[in-house]
């Protein structure tokens, strides 16, 4: 018998520090598989955020730089501009990318930086114990929206992919989910496309990944995956929002 599925080389042996059932781990593995499949691990520089994935530098088996909260796209810009032949990706949560780092992501996209952004939307601040994120759903209860998010005073959840796809500089933008095998397979394809865009030097690519946070949602991992299906996907539709213009 042959091994048909195993740990990608682009992941180290270090066990993930994520909670049981947290989708961060699936997202890591998919990115690592894509790096393996393109054979670019040794030419890749990743930038990890502040958030639960602050330790991602221990998990990805490639050169990694840790960013200040929200600043990963700016750091990735500095790296990519000085090493245009390296493959550069950021891995960011929704507090990181869509709140404190809004300016950095918008302008990296607008400049068409040739980097790939892996954006983990789990509708919450995981690391700090479950506060409201810009992506927290209307009515969702968190530590800082204890009576449910009231859009009238707390704003509506931001649809980052849709927002960024209005920018001409962005080349590839998609939203995927990891709540069931069929979606995981699609997510992998999308991440692969995003890196392909970078390899082809076509510009900015971002994959928004709807992801679970069983711990701070107060759900079991199985219930949390269901919650993604029932609550997140209806508000955050899956699909490609921007694809490279084919050169005729």
């Amino acid at each position: 018998m042959k091994k048909v599925f195993g740990r990608p080389v682009s992941l180290t042996d270090v066990p993930f520090t994520y909670c049981p059932g947290c989708h961060h781990g699936i997202a890591h593995r998919l990115v690592a598989e894509v790096l393996d499949e393109f054979g670019v691990r040794e030419n890749t520089i990743g930038v990890c955020p502040v958030g639960c994935s602050v330790f991602a530098y221990l998990f990805f088996n490639c050169d990694m730089v840790c960013a200040a909260h929200g600043r990963a796209p700016a750091i990735a810009t500095g790296i990519k501009r000085s090493r245009p032949d390296s493959i550069v990706f950021t891995y960011q949560g929704d507090g990181d990318l869509a709140s404190i780092g809004t300016a950095e992501i918008v302008h990296a996209a607008n400049r068409g930086e040739n980097i790939t952004v892996i954006f983990i939307n789990n509708a919450i601040y995981g690391m700090t114990g479950g506060q409201m994120a810009p992506t927290t759903l209307a009515g969702q209860i968190t530590q800082t929206s204890p009576y449910g998010r009231d859009p009238k005073t707390m704003g509506y959840p931001i649809r980052v992919s849709e927002m960024l796809s209005t920018l001409k500089g962005a080349t590839y933008i998609s939203r995927v989910a990891l709540n069931k095998p069929a979606n995981i397979i699609k997510a992998k394809k999308s991440i692969k496309k995003a890196f392909q865009v970078q390899l082809d030097r076509k510009g900015f690519s971002l994959v928004e990944i709807l992801s679970s946070c069983p711990t701070n949602w107060g759900l079991s991992p199985v219930e949390a995956s269901k919650w993604v299906e029932e609550n997140m996907i209806p508000y955050y539709p899956l699909g490609e929002f921007r694809v490279p213009e084919e050169v005729a």
């Binding site: 048909v4 599925f5 994520y18 059932g21 989708h23 781990g25």
Partner: peptide
Amino acid sequence: SGCAFCAITCPDVAIEVFK
């Protein structure tokens, strides 16, 4: 069946599949 659905779903990459 070796479909690997279990493995691709595992957040901790704890499952290997052989066929």
